[in-house]
Computed example of a mutant assay.
Amino acid sequence: MTGAFDGRSILVTGASSGLGAAAVRRFAAGGGLVHAASRDQAKLAEVAASCAGLPGEVRFGHLDVASRDSCRDAVAAAVEAYGRLDVLVNNAGRHDFRRTADVTEEEWDHDITLNLSGAFHLSQAAIPHLLETGGNIVNVASVAGVMGEAYSAAYTAAKHGIVGLTKALAVEYLDSPLRVNCVCPGGMDTPQAQTISVPDGADWELIMRVAAKRGLMSADSVAAVVVFLASDDAASVHGSIQMVDHGHLAG
């Protein structure tokens, strides 16, 4: 991927750790001009510092994906930083396990906003710029975007929504150079995976139905697929839903 993103501007959300941070590093390794966005500015600074020796450039800024205005501001900041926008990676999100019967209205709204509405607002703001550059969107869903996941009604609904959003945008923009694709990762070895909590008495057998026999993947291995979809090597890939799950859903 060396040089694949020379002169191209990329906005990566949820970029302070895990898959987002891995994607930032891969884009920078390919010469990309990356705007890394998240709420945690200290961690973003660490990610940017880790890219100091790479061919590309990394700047960073605040994003609260639950705020429509913040989503619009993040897109504007990326365009202001580099004068254009070529790629949007909608990666920000969070998975909280809850018993469906106990989910409050506020928790439902929060989960849907964080995992679905934010991607819509970012895409809405980015599309005019991406149409100018012939750019693309890579949405990050989950295996929960194509199957059910226990104690995750809101998260699963939102990730199914990301898959649907990808397909809807792909069809709407068939007559334009804009490409829109989606990655559905299985379990990854990320900080979030190390800190999950589940309801008391939860059935671990049900929770582990989504786990692949090969175990957790590295975030970098999934980031490689994200970066491929954003590259010219995937010029004919549009409206695709890419499973990256160690073969879990192959059967």
Rank of each mutant, 00 (worst) to 15 (best):
A4H: 09
A4Q: 14
A4C: 03
T13Q: 07
G14L: 07
S16Y: 03
S17D: 14
G18H: 10
A21C: 07
R25E: 14
R26W: 05
A28K: 06
A28V: 04
G31P: 08
A37Y: 09
A37P: 02
S38T: 11
R39T: 07
R39V: 04
D40C: 08
L44A: 10
E46A: 15
S50A: 15
C51L: 02
A52V: 08
R59Y: 04
F60E: 08
H62E: 12
A66D: 14
R68N: 02
R68S: 06
C71V: 05
R72M: 06
A76F: 13
A77V: 08
A77T: 11
V79L: 10
Y82G: 12
G83T: 03
D86Q: 06
V87F: 11
R94D: 14
R94G: 14
D96V: 14
A101P: 04
D102I: 01
W108R: 00
H110T: 09
I112Q: 09
I112R: 00
F120T: 01
L130C: 07
L131P: 05
N136D: 13
A141N: 07
M147G: 01
Y151S: 01
Y151I: 02
Y155P: 02
A157N: 09
A157G: 14
I162F: 08
L169S: 02
V171T: 12
Y173E: 00
L174C: 13
V180P: 00
V180E: 07
C182M: 12
P185Y: 10
D189M: 07
Q192I: 09
I196V: 15
A202D: 04
W204D: 13
W204L: 13
L206W: 03
I207M: 07
V210N: 11
K213E: 15
R214P: 00
G215I: 11
G215T: 08
A223C: 09
A230Y: 12
S231A: 09
D232A: 13
D232K: 08
D232I: 02
D233P: 05
L249P: 03
G251S: 11
G251R: 12
